[in-house]
Design a protein around this nucleic acid. Sequence first.
RNA 1: UGAGCUAUGGUGUAAUGGUAGCACAACAGAUUCUGAAUCUGUUUGUCUAGGUUCGAAUCCUGGUAGCUCAACCA
Length: 558
Amino acid sequence: MNIPEPLNFIQEIIVNDLKTGKRTKVHTRFPPEPNGYIHIGHAKSICLNFGTALKFGGKTNLRFDDTNPTKEDVEYVDSIRDDVHWLGFDWENREYYASDYYDKLYEFAEELIKKGKAYVCELKGDEVSEYRGTLTEPGRPSPWRNRSVEENLDLFRRMRAGEFEEGSCFLRAKIDMAHPNMNMRDPAVYRIKKASHHRTGNKWCIYPMYDFAHPLSDWIEGITHSICTLEFEAHRPLYDWFLEALELPDRPQQIEFARLNLSYTVMSKRKLLELVQSKRVMGWDDPRMPTVCGLRRRGYTPSSIREFCERIGISKADSMVDINLLYFCIREELNKSAQRAMAVLDPLKVVIDNWEEGREEEVDVENNPENPNAGNRKVIFGREIYIEASDFMENPPKKYFRLKPDGEVRLKGAYFIKYVGVDKDASGNITQIHCTYDPATKGGDSPDGRKVKGTIHWVYAPKAVDAEVRLFDNLFTLENTGDIPEGKDPLDYLNPNSMIVKQAKLEPMLGKATLEDRYQFMRSGYFCLDSRDTQEGRLVFNRTVELKDSWGKAQAKA
RNA sequence: UGAGCUAUGGUGUAAUGGUAGCACAACAGAUUCUGAAUCUGUUUGUCUAGGUUCGAAUCCUGGUAGCUCAACCA
C-alpha cells in the first residue's frame, strides 16, 4: 500500500500495526456526545479520524455517545450530522448510537458480575468519594464489595426493573481500591437515572458509564484505532480492563492526542453555551463563534477548515495555535477563488466637477486578477461617487498615497482624479469632496505615461446598493483564555469590538449576490451574505476575514 | 506533594543515533490598476545538568516546568 505523506504519530502507529500484522484493516470512529454544537476542535478530530481511515483505505463510523439522557438532545444530533457532512466527510450508512447497544451492554455487565468482576454498591455519593481515597492516599474497599454473584445479579436485575431510587445503589467494577490511578478504584459501570432518553424513551432506568460503554461500543463496531483527546489517557487502563475482563478478541486500541487550543477564543462547550445563553452572541452560529456552524456562517469554506486541520498537525504536547493560521487558510483559498467587487464601507461623497451632469459610462474591471478565466465586468461610473472616508486626508502623513489636496489618485478601472476642494458642515465635518478627472486616463492609464501611486475603490452613487456590513474580529481580547488571573472569568475579556456594523454602499452587481457567493471587497476583505439575516430587500454581508493591511499596521505603530 | 503524560524559533510541527527543516507570524526590499496577492532576503530554536557514543533533539539518569486524574459527566 502506498500511504500519502506526511504521517503524524498516530498514523505511524497504524503503519506499524499493519506491517507487523497486528491489524489487517483500519476502522475509526468520531464519537461526539450530542450535548452541544461541534467546534473547530471537533473538526480537528473529525479530520483526523476520517482522514486517517481514508489514508489507509479504511472506514469511519459516526457514533453518538449518548449514555447520559439528562444532558443530551436530538437538536444536537441533527446539528452534528449536518456539520460533519458540511465539512466534507461521509459515514455512509454507519451512523450509530451507544444507545443502540444498550441490550448488549447490559449483557456484558451481567457477564462481568458472573465473572465476579462487578458488584452492586450501596454507598452514597459522599461516602463513595470518601472510600475512594485521594491522589496520595489509597482508598478502602466498599462494605458491599464482597457480595455473592447471585446477590449482585439479583440486585442488578432489580436496578434495571426500577425497584431502586436514583443514587441508592450503582454497579461498580471490582478492580483495585488502592490503585495509583484513581480511575481504577472500582469505577462506576451503571447508574440509575429515571430519565427519558432521546432514542430509547423510557425503556431503561439504568444507563452505562462512558468508561464502560466506550470500549465495548468500539469493540462491537470493529473499531481498530480509537482516537481521543489527552484527558482520557488515564482512562486507557480502564478501557483495556473491560475488554480483557470480558475476554474479547481483536481488541481496539485507544490512542490519545492533544486537543486544539486557538488563541483569542474559547473552546469549552460550557463557555460556548454560556455565551449563547447570556446572549452575548447571536447564537451557536454567530459568526464570531468557533463552532462549525459559526465558521460556516462567517464564510469559511469546508476546504479551508480541512487545510487548517492539516497544517496544525497532531501531537501529544499541549499547544496554542495562533488564530492567524486560520485566517491565513481562508485568505489563501479565497484569494484564488473569490470574485472581486467594490464596496464602500464608510461612504464619503465625491463630486467630479468637470463631468457632465447626468452622463453615465461603463468601465471595465477584472473579476479576479488571480484567475484570468474569471474575465471582466462592466461597472457604471458617473459624476457622483462614494469613496472610503479613510481614502481622503486633508493633512496626510508621509507616504500617504490616496486622495489628498495635492497629487492624483486612480479610481480603480476608471480615471485619474485630482482634488479641487472640500465642503464642510457648520461643525467642520467634511460632507463632500470636489475633484476633476482627466478624460485621457479612461480605463485607469495615462497616455503620457505618468504614474500614480494610489488606486482606490469607488461606487457610483446614484446606482449604489445599500447593505448592512458586519465586520468581525476576535471574540476575546485575551490571547490565552485558558490562562486568566485569579478571580477573573474568560467572559471578562470579551472584545467589545468583535462586531462592528456598517451601512455600506455597494456596486450594483452585489445586489444579486446569493448565499453561496464569496466576494473580495477590494482593499477590504472577504465577504459573504449572512445566511440568517439577509431577506428580500435587506442585504447583510459578513466579513469572513480582512485583507492583510501593512499600511494600517504601520500607522498603528506610528 | 501519588500516578501518568509532555517539553524543538514568537506559534505550530518535522528530523525515527549522522548537515536542526517546513509553515504561520514578524522584519526588510522588489513589484503592483487591491498599501492585497506575488517574489527575494533576514531575525529567532533542541527546558536543564550529567552520562553512553566517533557522533545525541533523538538513548540513559537526575532535576525543572507544564498538563491530566479524586462525577453515579463525557
